[in-house]
Write a protein that binds this DNA or RNA. Structure first.
Lengths: 220, 220
DNA sequence: AATATAATGTGTATTTATTACACTATTAAA
DNA sequence: TTTAATAGTGTAATAAATACACATTATATT
């Protein structure tokens, strides 16, 4: 038995130099056959935080993804069958590691698919507003958010990190200055490992030192 | 006729060197006679943005206050009569200009009263969580928020502004460095006017130049 | 009129961060 | 061995942040 509000999940990833949004194709009215961000009703006695994981799993097949609350959306006309409030959540996932795991469990969605954030199809409900707000949030928290690194593999190159920043900020950055900045931050640890399988000079791999990140960013 | 979610308003102000929270004393069950942040049910066909102003007015007597959405709170046990989701909003008001206008219109609240943010009574529901989150939000947005200046009179002294920053950040700031920073910001305009009614050297008054603020802060 | 009080308002030297800018090094493939 | 593709590096100039102490001004008091 479900209550009268829903949860919608903006699941962002990074691939091919672009931010990607995971959309699901609806199999039920309203907006049957439309693309939407994955979402569903919260059960009456279910905590929102639990519902987010359940719904994300049912609609996309993805499990154990960390989500942050974005905002509530409750426009009277957002849902054709009467105002239904939704609480939007925002998650970041690493593209390659879940590539093959994306498949709705519920028949409520026909399929789930990635779309480049700057080239989205028409979306159901007010889901475009929700995605737009997510991208703004990401832009505004880029320097403070450890979850940013969920968008990258555990071990990543500085070029990957720079390209991610560029995609989020929508502008190019200077390589030398970017790397100098990384050094002063102190929470990005160079490893004694290098990229593999590239047909050019392999780049050094880095990882986020979460403890140091907490110290530096936690209470500045 | 109202729907099944509420709006709660965190109304912050600044007086006596401290952040102040406007609380209302409940006159209805549950939590009759408890202090709470002002809130009530949204009507079924009412936009949230309209409801915020209506509810704020009914519960406190205050009109036309700018509010920002903070977050949704929906703990299953937050309301003793079953889970009721609330969307919290955050507003800043200038203390002196509304001092005498605070009086609930609705009989749902017995009275409204200011409390220092660091010395609150026990609060109804999960309202302490909501206030705490508001104060965090204020801290994190202090440099980017034009609404910050709603906490001060239209014309204010740099000492007032510094004390406000100190109250929000919870630490003291250096006067000379603070003023140097103000100068480089460029959107705080010195006036040819001075403080009145003080028994010592009168300070110069400043005001926020909203156009310049937009330019500087809008898209950095 | 002189003094006390209480706050305002100001500058400099040091350190740190940001910006602008171009070439050499490395690897794999051809 | 050459080519292609990307990794990796330094310096000078400017701007911002920090640490720090005293003269100035308006009023109230004697």
């Amino acid at each position: 038995m479900h209550s009268q509000f829903t949860i919608d999940c903006v699941i962002l990833s990074f691939d091919n130099g672009k931010l990607q949004v995971l959309l699901t194709e609806r199999n039920e009215y309203p907006y049957k056959d439309w693309w939407s961000i994955p979402g569903y009703f919260v059960d009456k006695y279910e905590e929102m935080e639990d519902a987010v994981y359940r719904i994300c799993h049912e609609m996309t097949g993805l499990k154990n993804i960390y989500m942050d609350q974005l905002a509530a959306f409750a426009g009277v006309k957002r849902h054709p069958e009467g105002r239904i409030l939704t609480v939007a959540y925002l998650a970041f996932v690493q593209f390659d590691s879940i590539k093959n795991k994306i498949k709705p469990v519920s028949t409520y969605m026909k399929q789930a698919k990635w779309f480049a954030a700057n080239d989205l199809p028409d979306l159901a409900f007010d889901h475009l507003d929700i995605v737009t707000k997510s991208l703004d949030r990401l832009k505004n928290t880029i320097s403070y958010s450890a979850s940013l690194y969920e968008l990258l593999p555990e071990k990543f190159t500085l070029t990957q990190l720079q390209q991610l920043h560029e995609a989020i900020l929508g502008k190019t950055l200077d390589k030398r200055n970017f790397r100098k900045k990384i050094n002063t931050l102190g929470y990005l640890k160079p490893l004694d490992e290098y990229q593999k399988g590239v047909s050019y000079r392999a780049a050094k791999l880095y990882k986020l030192d979460k403890r140091k990140f907490q110290k530096v960013i936690g209470q500045p």
